[in-house]
Measured scan of single mutants.
Amino acid sequence: NQESVVAAVLIPINTALTVGMMTTRVVSPTGIPAEDIPRLISMQVNQVVPMGTTLMPDMVKGYAP
């Protein structure tokens, strides 16, 4: 099972992602793959992401799977 990126904290809208904001977990449905965390650093979320929420591609500005 592939791990997906999950919010480790509440991430406010338009916040640039940092390593500490993200964790990984096997979830269903799957979100952004864990191995993409290095690509996500400094990208901004386009909505509020509650802690424990799986990051989906459409939540991150400029992210393309």
Rank of each mutant, 00 (worst) to 15 (best):
T24P: 07
A8N: 07
V6F: 02
P50G: 09
V48A: 12
I13K: 08
I11A: 00
T18Q: 10
V26N: 07
M59H: 11
V49Q: 01
R39E: 03
M21E: 03
P12N: 14
I11C: 02
V19H: 15
A7Y: 01
T18K: 06
T18H: 09
T53Q: 11
M51Q: 15
V60K: 01
T18M: 11
A16C: 04
P50I: 08
N46T: 13
V6E: 04
I32A: 04
T54A: 10
L55W: 00
V5C: 03
E35A: 06
Q2N: 15
L40K: 01
P38M: 13
V5A: 13
R25C: 03
Y63I: 09
A64G: 14
N1A: 13
T53S: 08
T23F: 13
T18P: 01
I13Q: 11
I37N: 02
V49S: 01
T23D: 13
N46Q: 08
P12R: 08
V60A: 02
D58N: 14
I37M: 07
N46L: 08
E35D: 10
R39V: 03
V60E: 01
S28N: 10
S42L: 11
A16T: 14
T24F: 10
M21I: 05
V26K: 03
T54S: 05
Q2Y: 05
M56G: 14
T30G: 05
E3D: 10
M21V: 05
P29L: 15
A7L: 02
P50L: 13
L10T: 09
Q47T: 05
T24Q: 11
I41G: 05
T15L: 13
V9T: 13
T15S: 10
G31L: 02
V19W: 12
L40W: 02
Q47Y: 12
I32K: 00
Q2G: 15
V19N: 11
V26Q: 13
V6I: 13
P65S: 13
T30K: 04
K61Y: 11
T53M: 14
V49N: 01
G31A: 07
Y63M: 13
V48G: 09
V6R: 02
T54C: 03
P57Q: 09
V9A: 12
T53K: 11
Y63W: 14
D36C: 04
A64P: 08
M56Y: 09
M51N: 13
V26W: 05
V9I: 14
M22W: 02
E35Y: 05
S4P: 00
V48K: 08
K61D: 15
I37Q: 12
N1E: 15
P50E: 12
N46E: 09
R39N: 07
V49Y: 01
I37L: 07
L55T: 01
P65H: 12
M59R: 02
A16G: 12
V27P: 01
L40T: 02
L40I: 15
I41A: 08
T54H: 02
P29W: 03
S4M: 02
P33Y: 14
D36I: 07
D58E: 13
V49P: 01
S42D: 08
L10S: 12
Q44D: 03
A34D: 15
V45T: 11
T15I: 08
N1I: 05
M21Y: 09
G31E: 02
L55K: 00
P50Y: 08
V19D: 08
E3S: 04
D36H: 11
L17W: 01
G52V: 02
V19Q: 14
L55D: 00
T23I: 09
I37G: 12
T53I: 07
M21K: 06
A7E: 00
T54R: 03
I32Q: 01
V26F: 05
L10H: 09
R25L: 06
A16Q: 15
I11M: 09
L17K: 01
V9S: 14
P65W: 02
Y63A: 04
G62N: 15
S42E: 13
P33A: 08
T53C: 03
M43P: 00
V6C: 03
D58F: 08
T54P: 11
T24L: 05
E3C: 03
A8R: 08
M51A: 12
M21Q: 09
L55Q: 00
G20I: 12
A64K: 14
M59F: 09
R39H: 15
S28L: 09
Q44T: 15
V5W: 01
V49A: 06
S28D: 15
P33I: 09
S4H: 02
G31P: 01
A34C: 05
V6P: 00
A7R: 00
G31H: 02
P57C: 06
Q2K: 03
N46H: 10
N1Q: 10
S28M: 13
